[in-house]
Design a protein around this nucleic acid. Sequence first.
DNA 1: AGAAGGACCAGTGGTCCGTA
DNA 2: AGAAGGACCAGTGGTCCGTA
Lengths: 293, 293
Amino acid sequence: DQHNALDALSQEGLSEEPVQLERDTAGSGGEAAAIREGKGKNPQRRSSGKKKDGSSIKNRKKKKKGLDVDDDDEEDVEVWGRCSMPGDENDDIDDGEESETERSGGGERQREHPFIVTEPGEVARAKKNGLDYLFHLYEQCHEFLLQVQAVAKDRGDKCPTKVTNLVFRYAKKVGASYINKPKMRHYVHCYALHVLDEEASNALRRAFKERGENVGAWRLACYKPLVAISAAHSFDIDAVFNAHPRLSIWYVPTKLRQLCHLARSSSQPSVAAATVAGSSSGSAHRSLGGSDA
Amino acid sequence: DQHNALDALSQEGLSEEPVQLERDTAGSGGEAAAIREGKGKNPQRRSSGKKKDGSSIKNRKKKKKGLDVDDDDEEDVEVWGRCSMPGDENDDIDDGEESETERSGGGERQREHPFIVTEPGEVARAKKNGLDYLFHLYEQCHEFLLQVQAVAKDRGDKCPTKVTNLVFRYAKKVGASYINKPKMRHYVHCYALHVLDEEASNALRRAFKERGENVGAWRLACYKPLVAISAAHSFDIDAVFNAHPRLSIWYVPTKLRQLCHLARSSSQPSVAAATVAGSSSGSAHRSLGGSDA
DNA sequence: AGAAGGACCAGTGGTCCGTA
DNA sequence: AGAAGGACCAGTGGTCCGTA
């Protein structure tokens, strides 16, 4: 029905058209519009429909609020890379069998193109996304957080300091459907390295690209230099994140924290020994494997 | 079976005996003991048993951790008030019909004595608790938080900055069964006033005691001076809380935040008008009533 | 009636695993 | 095979309301 151009915008170098959602209700309501919840979009959110047993036993009165901005603001996204990227030819990017019209037409359940390891400044081709684009997503989330914070402050609501579910929901609402929580959490530490030591990050990217490694391998390799950086702050990775304004809005990934902790106890055998003897810790030896390895 | 002296300790001026829980396992496990979860205590936590439909469909692997300290440390609680309180007679406090032995004997489901409005330094009698005791509970929570934080840091876990569920659980575990979340949240703003302007807080207590007001009335009266204090920080009550080390560990109560927000929009009619015209807020006019009034 | 707190609920952080 | 993300789950913040 409505031109669901949403998914098409996830394309690198294809977001020419400004995002416009739910234009219809803009300017209609004022206070009411700002507070109203669903607006009819996403009617079946939280549709698990299996855990809860039908009726909600007690109908407590709960005022729900929701953020729900009217996004008249064209979401000044101004295609990423357009400023910093070389090679700006916009057409022959889509060289596969799936044509542009084909994509925006059907309901084929699009996903983002997978990432590949690119050098700084390099544009990914052939249905791939590059790492500059990945990092740009983090900057976008930061902007979304700022907007969410502004609304919260204005309304006197509790103001998030981190990129929370609320921010991801907001991103969806303003049309950034290509941003989602699992993805952003997955690569946070890669972004952290990029922010904390861009030189090292760039070198790692070049090395892994040259070796033909895949994204997963590069991602894993990002842990080590971060642990090294944390060493200068006695392995307190939270302190490292919090000290940097662009990082402080991101939760420290569990595995990174564990690695730093492990490195700390390994680097201080006396402390580790005393700790075990005193039975106050030892948790550094928990498995760090799991599906993330 | 075991002397469940837990509840008895909630008595003001009765906590002579040091808290000792689960002594048996102390010193046995070291690392294992520090990580182990339930230790058999509180077997049926989260016993709602109505919402979830029996089997948990997918048996995902989830490593649960838990804090679970071995509390050999006698929980240096050193009865509150014993230092600052006048009138230290310990015996005729219990002048009701329920005797000391009667209380610790049966399974009568004890609760804390209700609070009454007391002057600073005044000891409550006749099965009542005073406000100095109330405020002392907040200090205790702070100590518990410090301990939880120490353990978390030592284990490399995520470290809470606020009094969270984890802290309340810890309090229970080390025997402070008289601390619970609803109570602490209920009176946070009263404690805030005590911390931010002890003079004003004391004056309010004296006034309300003299007038014979009940605790609920006093509690409600605590909001107003706090809003006034927030005014000096442009009604940013979060900033006020965060600026004070003893307050920053407490979540700002919803109603207090709403009242400050309301006061802000009332104090700046031009801003409020512009805001309504521009349809970006107006939420200040939400109901502040509810069951808290 | 006034008050303490067990227990509930909506929405969170975290990430698994069915999907493509 | 490698990767993106819908959807799930355990435990959170918040506080209602059955209890005493």
